[in-house]
Each structure stands twice: as structure tokens, then as C-alpha cells.
Design a protein around this nucleic acid. Structure first.
Lengths: 229, 229
DNA sequence: CGGACTCCTGATCAAATGGACAACAAGTGA
DNA sequence: TCACTTGTTGTCCATTTGATCAGGAGTCCG
């Protein structure tokens, strides 16, 4: 019936549907509980996938009775969508702009570092996104088709002008974006594997710094650029 | 009770537990149905995750009654494990060996191409693996801790000797393996996203060739190497 | 053909789960 | 304090799902 909001407008402010026609301003209670629930939902959905996650578990993680959770999000699907609205909103605020007049090396380095930083700050978001895509993106299809496609094309064009101006090696710009995307995302998504292989219990800040250094170094050189600084 | 075989020995021949103490040679029927079921399981688990997958759906995909599926794999967990045994076995057969005396450029190029080819040939396997890791690798933990760790360390050592001999730029070998891993895996795991961004309906062979070319080009140059041939 | 084993499957069940609902509590502005 | 809105929660239910089981069909071999 009410179609999920992610598909329609991924970044809009998510107004809770059960507050329709209100005359009172919605108190803090609403906001606070919404946040608690969404945070719990991120954990639960990331650990078990959409179908595997249960409202009961989300409720427990949030420290609320199941009925109360269902009061805020009338069903599982809406909760999942609201969660992605949240995530995509957070991401969009951080996503780097690049311009033709920027220095290629610096711009790419910033992009890489920003994405690694996002893997550090929002690992759950990254994993949720990955799981959605892997499963065929039933909820994010529209977002990919519109916003994401435009985003990639925009950056690719800029990179292409850099290439045309002989400011970097002639590499496929779209592939380059995928490369940066995947290699940075990897630190969040495959955390367990990385930790296991390196025999560590958990990440430290310097692991991310080290990763970012390595990636900028190799990828920039791979593009015929000198790492800045 | 019977612990999952993946953890114990990822590559062993998976003998079906319900054929114990047989005096007759197990007919082809068994083998054929096992394969049908495991293929169906790959699809179903990859689409819905472990918890989201249902035996009923797997049965339908395999064209068998649910009871029959449960005759071959007495429960869901064993089916999931058997599936990973299968996958890891397939992978291990393809996994590239590298030696100190190899040419770095050629060895790395081969590695990259092999992994891209695996993304093309076994996209479901790749996605299943990714989902497992993202969800914390409850089933593959032991595999990561032993086989995978050794595998990475072995290759990293070889790469390090290349570096020590001045045959390539001094980059962190383990990070380099992660980079290759993630960027190649990406073509299978994020297929939907890539197709959507590039506005294509499905992959063609040349997409993989193009991707492999791009990755070898950029990564090798990033390691201070010339692409071979 | 007959026994021994493998293979197949419909019926059945207990547990889990998404969600509806109604009664009740708390907050809010006049 | 009153009227009205928002928030809370226990109870209940239909469905789904993993798994069991018993009986029967098919296959193989002497």
C-alpha cells in the first residue's frame, strides 16, 4: 500500500507515519525512541539480514517491548526503509564533491580517505548497504537507478576531463570509482576476515590510517599521480 | 551434536551422513539429487541469507518435495555447511600459487585475472562468502582462522621477497592482497549496483575482460610494475 | 522372486514470528 | 482540572518454518 520511502526519495526527512494530523508538536520522546529503535535495527538487520532479523530482537536490543516498537514503525518493511533513509541521509552529508579545477591527486586522496573514514565510523551502515546489494537491492533499486547513477556519472566526467587534460593516466573513470569504492568499503564489510587474517581482536585507529595510506599510495600511483604532501 | 564440517576441514570430500554403513554402492540418484539440492541452496541462501532461506524454497528450486530435501540433508545447518564445503573445494582448485622466482608482474596479473574469472564463473559462491563474512562468519570462522590466514601469509611472504629484491615498489603485501581481493570480488558481489550504474541489463564477457584489464593496469602500476605483454 | 537396503513423501507438530487490538498511562494546552 | 492527543503494553492469532515419522515405492543382488 504505502510504498517504501527509500525508493521514492532516499534523502528526505523521514516523518513518522503514525504522527499524521497532529496538532501537538511531537515531543522528544518520539525522537528519542525512534533513534533507539533505528540503532537497534541497524545492528539486528546487519547481523541477520532482512528476513533473519526479528522485531522481537530489535525490541530487546532497544530495551523496549515489541508492541512499543510496532507502535513507532507499524511494520518490519517500514522500519527497514526508515533505517535506510537514515543511513543514506548520513552518507550524503559526507560525500565528497570533486571539480574539474581541483588537483586530481588531492581530490582522489581526499575521496579515498573520506571513504575509509566512513568505513570506520559507520561500519554497520556499510554492511547493511552491502547486504542489500548482494541480495539484489530489492529496497535500494530505485536509489541505485537514480541518485547513485548520477553521482557516479558526475564524478566520472570530472575524472575524464583530468585525463583529457593529461593530468593523470588514461584509466576508465567509472572503473576507478568502483575500485575505490570496493577497496575502501572492504574494511567495514570484511572486518571479521581482516581481523582474523591479521590475528587481531579489533581495529585500531592506526589500522585505518595505514589502510588509507596504502590505498592512496597504490591507487594514485596506479593513476600516474604523486601522493600529495 | 555433529559439528559442522566446514569448520573442521573445509576441503574434505563431503560424505553424506545418511549413507552410513552402506553395503551397496550409493547410486547415482543420490549424487544427482545432492547436486540439484546444493545448487538450489546456493541460489536460495545467496538471495535471502541463512535465516531468510527456507527449506521449502530450496525444495521448490530443486523441484523436489521438502521431505525429500530433508532426507538428504537432515537439517538446515548441515545443508549450509555442505554447501560451503562444496564452494571452498571448488575455489581451492583454482587458487593461484605464487613463488619467489616468478615474475611479480606476471604473477600478480594472473592472480587478478583468475579472481575476476572466478567472479564471473561463481558469482553465487562469491556472494555467499561475502554474506557470511559480513554477518560475522559464524560458520567460516575456523576456516578464516586457519586456512585463509595461512594462505594470505604465504603469498605475503613471497611478495615481500620481491620487494626486498627491489623487483617492485615497497607496498604492504597483506594490504595488497586485500586490495586485489576486494576489487575483484566486487564484480560478483555488487553486480546489481554496477549494472544499474552502467545502465546494463546483464554482464557480457568483455565487461569482465575490461575490468580485468583495468585492474591489472592500475594495480600493477601502483606497485611500480609494467603490465606484462 | 524375495529379502535387504535405499529412496520418497504426505501428514503432523511445536516453536517462532509478524502483526492487530484494546485497554490503559502519561503528557499537553486551555 | 478537563479534554484530547500521544505513548505503552499484555494478550491474542494466523501463518510460516524446521523437523519428525511412518509407511510405502524403487532398486539391487543372489
Amino acid at each position: 500500500m504505502t510504498n517504501n520511502s527509500v525508493a521514492e526519495n532516499p534523502v528526505k526527512e523521514t516523518v513518522d507515519e503514525s504522527a499524521q494530523g497532529r496538532k501537538y508538536r511531537p515531543g522528544r520522546i518520539r525522537e528519542r525512541n525512534r533513534e533507539k529503535i533505528l540503532a537497534a535495527a541497524e545492528e539486528e538487520f546487519a547481523s541477520n539480514g532482512y528476513k533473519g532479523a526479528t522485531i522481537q530482537n530489535i525490541a530487546e536490543r532497544a530495551g523496549l517491548p515489541k508492541s512499543n516498537v510496532l507502535y513507532y514503525f507499524s511494520n518490519k518493511k517500514k522500519m527497514y526503509s526508515a533505517m535506510f533513509d537514515d543511513i543514506l541521509g548520513r552518507w550524503n552529508k559526507v560525500f565528497t564533491e570533486i571539480r574539474p579545477e581541483d588537483d586530481p591527486a588531492e581530490a582522489l586522496a581526499t575521496f579515498i580517505r573520506t571513504k575509509v573514514e566512513m568505513s570506520r565510523q559507520f561500519p554497520l551502515a556499510s554492511r547493511l548497504f552491502a547486504m542489500e546489494i548482494i541480495q539484489g537491492a530489492p529496497f535500494l533499486m530505485d536509489h541505485l537507478r537514480t541518485n547513485m547513477r548520477e553521482w557516479v556519472r558526475g564524478r566520472a566526467e570530472v575524472i575524464q576531463t583530468w585525463i583529457d587534460d593529461g593530468r593523470m593516466a588514461p584509466v576508465d573513470p567509472v572503473q576507478l570509482i568502483f575500485l575505490i569504492w570496493s577497496s575502501t568499503q572492504h574494511y567495514a564489510d570484511f572486518q571479521v576476515q581482516i581481523l582474523m587474517v591479521e590475528n587481531k581482536a579489533e581495529y585500531e585507529q592506526r589500522d585505518f590510517d595505514h589502510a588509507a595510506d596504502f590505498l592512496t599510495d597504490v591507487i594514485l600511483r596506479g593513476c600516474g599521480l604523486e601522493s600529495p604532501k
